[in-house]
Design a protein around this nucleic acid. Sequence first.
DNA 1: CGTTGAGTTTGACGGATGTCGAATCCGATG
DNA 2: CATCGGATTCGACATCCGTCAAACTCAACG
Lengths: 107, 107
Amino acid sequence: MVTEPVSESDAGVLAQSFKALSDPVRLRLLSLIAARAGQEVCVCDLLDAFTQTAPTISHHLKVLRDAGLITGERRASWVYYRVVPAALSALSQLLDASAMTPRQTPA
Amino acid sequence: MVTEPVSESDAGVLAQSFKALSDPVRLRLLSLIAARAGQEVCVCDLLDAFTQTAPTISHHLKVLRDAGLITGERRASWVYYRVVPAALSALSQLLDASAMTPRQTPA
DNA sequence: CGTTGAGTTTGACGGATGTCGAATCCGATG
DNA sequence: CATCGGATTCGACATCCGTCAAACTCAACG
């Protein structure tokens, strides 16, 4: 991002990723899922942490899923969610490049 | 984020930061400003890269400013913008922690 | 001190978004 | 196969958000 401005087309998909993170409920959802790094969390566990209804939580999970930040798998009656490390890492690196201080001069 | 879930109050301010990044125009604006790491960019330069009108760009710059991601300073007739590395770095690290793979087991 | 140019603020409008209740789907269990 | 519980989808509604035109602010310049 610091070496070359984000292209007009890239900006669209990136903005969509960040939009998925731009809601307090979704941020906490992702946080709760990420806190079980490697493991999984079922929706029923997540619901306890929120006051919003199940349809709302389900909606937010879908947004995170559509953005590619988490994946969900159904087993028996329950659906388990997991984070997608690569997706979060990509966003992290983008911001890291932007945060480059003048001190860290490129070669 | 991976060690401890984001608190309910933190989620609000963090979501606001990500919301600032959740628009293609703002993402490109930040990118163009970040591309001049350490230096400054005046609004007039930025305007050339977009089809939207000056008020719209000004609005987006305000959103980025209110989120603490950039700072603006008026000198003579022009306003110059700069990135705030610490703010971007903080968000970057948050996502980096979330992206931790099972491989990278903490001590 | 009127004018010009850079940038922001205001007001309005259309589209997107978060939320809920009701309905639906899908496995499991009796 | 009827029922139940977990989870998603649908439909509706209020609010938020991106966008522009018009009006305004501020500094430089004649």
